[in-house]
Amino acid sequence: MNIALINGSPKGGATNSGFLLEKLRPLLPQEAAISTYRIGPKALKNEQYLELLAMDMLVLAFPLYFDAIPSHLLRMLTEMERSTQSSNQRPQTVRVYAMINNGFFEGDQCKLAVELIRNWCERCGFMFGTAFGHGAGEMFGSVGHVPVGSGPLKNLGLALEHLVGSIRSGESTEPFFTQPNFPRGLWKLSSTQLFWNATAKKNSLKPKDLRRRPGMPPIRLPQSGGKRQDV
């Protein structure tokens, strides 16, 4: 059983998507041969697409961008769809799983990103296994020491169990959406005080500076004759 763990976060270094993959890895079947991929702004090579097409399973982990898939990962998915059309490998056997995190609190804000992955699977001839969406993803970095399945990561434990259950059984199941085990108001408050305002301070800015409203920059608008006019 060949499984590709694909980190679709565009950030460098430690990422929330990497955190989810790290927590999933020990739960995967022991006999599985696991390969890891990082999808950044730089495109994958052709041979890497062929490697992915030869996998039994793909596990995509990515952050939610504008209710959907971030553009660099979307570009990779479209390239992979092209590869399925030009390859004579066996895409029908590939099963796809997704772990999506978002910065809001509610995990179900990831549901459209799941549908996009499901529609992509249909276009590629892949089988959609299942997916989960988890809210408050930016929290993962600060609770790395907490065992999965307890405290604020209790529901993440259930989400991983859901995903692994489908991987082991080979059956497709409906997606699972959840959020951390602490109050939503606390997330709103802590993200404001401990993250945004604290980061502003590190950058020598005050909270009110984050609300700045830059004006329209000088740009050239096209005119009907094909010329462009400065504004």
Binding site: A68, I69, S71, L74, R75, L112, L116, W120
Partner: peptide
């Protein structure tokens, strides 16, 4: 796939 093209996205 039910969303925008990579450029518009």
């Amino acid at each position: 796939y039910g969303g925008y093209s990579p450029f518009v996205c």
